[in-house]
């Protein structure tokens, strides 16, 4: 019960202090919307459903990794993060609470292009439960990537630079722009080491039925990445922040 109170209040505090701030809400709407419009202008005859997996994936990736890396680095530089480390709550509870807010923010970001697409395309065939689960899993792995970045950065600008260092190669390697099968042979193994590749494949399957991997494998791999990243993050926090 005590852990739950702490978890809920860390989440509530982050949502109020960071995610519900007008600049972040507007960023969360404008960013995915701009991507969508950009893609539509580039290929006006293109099927928006074919663009949707990429737009959802990019919206989640950019929303979650940025927010968590920046908010944690910000709290660390002001030393308020020490309060969480000194509280009598398990490190896992604290990590879960911190990423929960980001997952919600990423999910919100993901649904902006979905709502936009619903104006132009028929989405009745979409399995919404599976889509939500996929979005949550992509948000979870991206949030944990953001946390890993936050552990490695000392300053907010460092976190942003590091985040871009990870995000852009991920976008090009995950099969969004070029299918993995058409990537140079040397890069393909790298693609399969990225959680976003499995998330993108799931989204493609759910929205356009153009997946190349089994959905069960993709869900399994996303869960595997989430668990591994979680353990790495926890270990890194213990090593780096509890000196």
């Amino acid at each position: 019960m005590k852990s739950w109170i702490a978890f809920w209040n860390i989440l509530k505090k982050d949502v109020r202090n960071y995610y519900l701030k007008p600049p972040n809400i507007s960023w969360g709407i404008i960013f995915p919307l701009s991507w969508t419009l950009m893609q539509l202008i580039r290929s006006p005859d293109g099927n928006i459903l074919e663009l949707l997996p990429g737009l959802i994936a990019m919206s989640i990736l950019f929303g979650t990794t940025s927010m968590l890396a920046v908010t944690i680095t910000f709290e660390r530089s002001g030393r308020s993060f020490e309060r969480l480390l000194l509280a009598p709550i398990h490190l896992s509870t604290m990590v879960l609470a911190k990423i929960a807010g980001t997952i919600l923010f990423g999910t919100f970001n993901a649904f902006v292009p979905v709502i936009f697409a619903a104006l132009f395309a028929d989405l009745r065939a979409v399995n919404w439960g599976a889509l939500l689960l996929t979005i949550l899993l992509i948000a979870l792995t991206s949030a944990l990537t953001g946390l890993l970045i936050a552990v490695s950065a000392e300053q907010v600008f460092e976190a942003q630079t590091l985040a871009n260092f990870f995000r852009f190669p991920m976008l090009f390697l995950c099969g969004l722009f070029v299918p993995i099968a058409r990537l140079p042979l040397l890069l393909r193994p790298l693609s399969y080491c990225l959680p976003l590749s499995y998330g993108t494949d799931l989204l493609k399957g759910l929205l356009t039925r153009q997946n190349s991997l089994s959905p069960a494998l993709c869900f399994g791999m996303l869960l595997f990445f989430a668990a591994t990243l979680f353990l790495i993050c926890r270990h890194r926090i213990q090593q780096k922040w509890i000196l």
Binding site: M1, K2, I5, A6, N9, P88, I89
Partner: peptide, 11 residues
């Protein structure tokens, strides 16, 4: 203060 209390599990 309420947030700090919540970290200690106070209702």
């Amino acid at each position: 203060l309420c947030f700090c209390a919540a970290l200690y599990g106070m209702p």
